[in-house]
Design a binder for these strands. Structure first.
Length: 360
DNA sequence: ATGCATGAGAA
DNA sequence: TCTCATGCATA
């Protein structure tokens, strides 16, 4: 088995999004029912009705229900927790924190399906949910991460901006950019170089990526660093446009549960960290003097098993339900429309992840 | 390790 | 709105 080829063909563009400003957009909340014409689907038999589809899907779901059981839960189970962070122990299992969303690597694009719906009128709904802003924190570098941080110190700052694009003559564009807000730094250029490698850069080889991920994990563990440590330590590398990443992302990288593009974009960064960390460790070995020392809560809705099964059934029939269908499903399952919409989005994303996509 | 969520950017 | 990259909260 060695086939290589990424199936995603993206493209073209040399990228670059200019540091745009974030227009403010308020997140859309929910739109409730409206009347809508027709969900034009592409040759789908089940194209435009609702009840029938829903019932059918549920019937399918029912099959599982027999086999599996869980208790029916509240439709709106959201957990909130007050997070009190402040727990940094020496043990590797820490967490990282950062400022805003350091969103950052992007590349994508490929054109795909032309689907779209119509306008739905009205969208209002008093929603209880709102979002808040993050609290900042992160003061010093605690413990465990000497290696992680590559021994260098952090001046606590995040960077911000820039966006870098890489494109050669090929197809693939990777861009690492951070959203900046105010100032921007200069830009520069070497992402690939950071990898310290010879190659120019992108290698769409699932093989290579998989191998790297494996090695990465292995060496990371050997260094005694946790995924969270790696994530926060990335900021210390000061690679233009690269801030820190969460434990989640590192974990997903190692387990290949990221999109191909994302894997490709992250690889050079993590590779750079790895080298730096190993270098730092060697340095430390030399002199055993070591270290001196050492909100808003987001709510996570919990969709009960039965509802989840129904959603899966609907998804099997129609992965991209129209707004109206989403509303119908939401109502039927007694879930918020937005929850259902997000569920579908996440489901679609899952399908696209690497792991064993196919070409592999 | 993963589920659900947010946000930017592009349609 | 959707996709994508990411992250907080959780199990």
């Amino acid at each position: 088995m060695m086939s290589m080829n990424s199936k995603q063909a993206f493209s073209m563009h040399p990228i670059l999004h200019e540091p745009k400003y974030a227009p403010l957009h308020s997140s859309s909340e929910a739109i409730r029912r409206a009347c809508l014409p027709t969900p034009s689907l592409q040759g789908n038999i089940f194209a435009g009705f609702d009840e029938t589809l829903l019932q059918r899907a549920e019937a399918l779901a029912a099959v599982d229900i027999v086999t599996q059981k869980s208790h029916p839960f509240k439709p709106d189970a959201t957990y909130h927790t007050m997070t009190t962070m402040t727990s940094m122990t020496g043990t590797p299992t820490s967490s990282a924190s950062h400022l805003h969303h350091p969103s950052v690597l992007t590349s994508h694009h490929h054109a795909h399906h032309p689907h779209h719906h119509h306008h739905q009128t009205q969208g209002l709904e008093g929603d209880l949910l709102e979002h808040l802003s993050p609290g900042i924190s992160l003061g010093g570098m605690p413990t465990a991460a000497d290696v992680a941080s590559g021994a260098s110190h952090a001046h606590s700052h995040m960077a911000a901006a820039i966006n870098h694009a890489q494109h050669h003559h090929h197809s693939h564009a990777q861009a690492v950019n951070v959203h900046h807000s105010h100032h921007a730094l200069a830009a520069h250029a070497s992402l690939a170089a950071a990898a310290g490698a010879a190659a120019c850069d992108a290698e769409p080889d699932p093989r290579e990526l998989e191998a790297f991920a494996e090695r990465f994990k292995q060496r990371r563990i050997k260094l005694g660093v946790t995924q969270a440590d790696v994530g926060s330590a990335l900021a210390n590398l000061k690679i233009p446009g690269v801030g820190c990443l969460s434990q989640s992302t590192i974990c997903r990288f190692e387990s290949l549960t990221l999109s191909h593009n994302n894997m490709v974009a992250l690889k050079p960064i993590l590779e750079a960290w790895l080298e730096e960390a190993e270098r730092a460790q060697r340095e430390k070995m030399a002199k055993p003097e070591i270290f001196s020392v050492g909100d808003k809560k987001r709510k996570r809705t919990s969709i009960a098993a039965p509802e989840k099964r129904s959603l899966e059934a609907y998804f099997a029939v129609q992965p991209r339900p129209s707004s109206e269908k989403i509303a119908a499903i939401a109502e039927k399952l007694d879930l918020k429309k937005n929850v259902v919409r997000v569920w579908f989005c996440n489901q679609r994303q899952k399908q696209k992840r690497m792991k064993f996509s196919a070409t592999h």
